Simulated scan of single mutants.
Amino acid sequence: MSHTAHIPSHRKPRRSASKLALRAGVAGGVLSTIAVAGAAGPAHAEPVTETIEMPTLGSLGTDLASAVSASAEASQQEALDQSLMAQENAALQKAAQEAKKAKAEADRKAAAERAEKARAEAEAKAERERAEAAERAARAEARAQLATTSASTSDDDGSSDSSRSTTSRSDGSDSSDSSNGGSSASEEETTQAPASGSAAAIVSFARAQVGDAYVSGGTGPNSWDCSGLVQAAYRAAGIDLPRISYQQSSMGTSVSLSDLQPGDILYWGSRSGSYHVAVYVGGGMYVGAQNSSTGVVERSLDWDPPSGAVRIL
Rank of each mutant, 00 (worst) to 15 (best):
S9H: 02
A17H: 10
R23M: 09
R23W: 08
A24K: 13
A24C: 03
G25F: 08
S32L: 09
P47G: 10
I52L: 13
G58I: 06
A70W: 14
Q76R: 13
E88I: 01
N89T: 05
A95H: 15
R108E: 06
R114F: 05
R114Y: 05
A120D: 01
E121H: 08
R128M: 07
R128Q: 12
A133G: 10
R136L: 04
R143M: 10
T148A: 15
S154Q: 12
S162D: 10
T167D: 15
A185C: 02
E188L: 00
P194I: 02
A199D: 12
V203G: 11
R207P: 07
D212W: 01
G218S: 00
T219Q: 02
T219H: 03
C226M: 06
G228E: 01
G228I: 03
A237K: 07
G238M: 00
D240H: 03
I244M: 12
V255I: 03
G263V: 01
D264C: 05
Y275G: 09
H276F: 07
A278S: 11
V281L: 02
G282C: 05
G283N: 05
Y286D: 03
V287S: 04
V287Y: 00
G295T: 00
V297L: 01
L301Q: 07
W303M: 04
P306S: 08
V310K: 09
